[in-house]
Structure formats: structure tokens, C-alpha cells
Simulated scan of single mutants.
Amino acid sequence: MRKSAIESLLELDRRRETFELPPLATHLKHTIHAYFQEQDFTFHIPGQQVIIHKLPVDLRMVFISIGKSAPYKVFYRITSQNIEVFLIRHPYQKPLD
């Protein structure tokens, strides 16, 4: 995960703290890692392509559910057989430009 993705997770936990909810970042990080580990990229590339101002043009977005919550948006790209996660957004966060 890139530094920006880690910052996304920390921002989500700060937001949860304002609602007196327990932190979720570690569990979310492990769930995202497990999701990508289970994918066979030779057969299918998950998610849809997205374009976000000031971010690389080859980004894709997948929805990953954690428990019963609405799915989180995970923005990633594939670089030389590696998965690079850029951002993680809560479903109710403001949209990115």
C-alpha cells in the first residue's frame, strides 16, 4: 500500500472515532490484502477503470465489503505484477474530483 492508502485508513479511523466506533484500519488492510491475493489477474482484472484528477491514469476501483457495512472503494493499479493501492474511501465520504 502506498502512503496515501495508509493515510486513507487513518482518516477513516479518525472519522469512526468521532462516532465513537472502534478502529477498523488494521482489519480493512488485511481484508484488502486477502482480496487481492485471491484474484487471478491472468484471467480477470477486477473493478472498473477510473480517472481522478492528479492521480495516475491507469487506476481501477473495486468495492470491498467489510462485514455488514456498505462496501469501501479501493483504488489501485497494477505495476509490473504488483498491486499498488492508492486510496481507500468509505462509501459515504465525499466523492473525489
Rank of each mutant, 00 (worst) to 15 (best):
M1C: 07
P46T: 09
I32N: 00
I78E: 11
H90P: 00
G67F: 04
E84F: 02
T31K: 15
Q37T: 09
H27Q: 13
L55F: 12
K94S: 11
V62A: 02
A34C: 06
K94T: 07
S4T: 14
K68G: 08
Y76S: 04
H53F: 07
S80R: 15
D58K: 09
I6Y: 10
I78D: 01
T79E: 13
I6Q: 14
I52V: 13
L12F: 06
F19C: 04
E38N: 13
Q81N: 13
D13Y: 05
Y72E: 01
H33Y: 11
Y72W: 05
E20C: 09
K54F: 05
T79M: 06
K29W: 10
I32H: 04
R60C: 01
Q81T: 10
H90A: 15
E17A: 14
F19T: 10
T26P: 01
S8W: 05
I32R: 01
H30I: 10
I45E: 10
I45G: 00
A34V: 05
L28W: 02
E17V: 03
H53K: 12
D40H: 11
Y35I: 02
E38Q: 14
E20L: 12
V57S: 12
K68P: 04
T79D: 11
L24P: 00
V50P: 12
L12G: 10
D58T: 02
T26A: 12
E7C: 00
L10N: 12
Y72M: 06
Y35S: 03
P91L: 01
E17I: 00
I64V: 14
T79Y: 09
Q93K: 08
Y72H: 12
I64L: 04
P46K: 07
L96Y: 09
L28K: 09
R60V: 01
I6S: 06
L87C: 06
I6W: 13
Q49G: 12
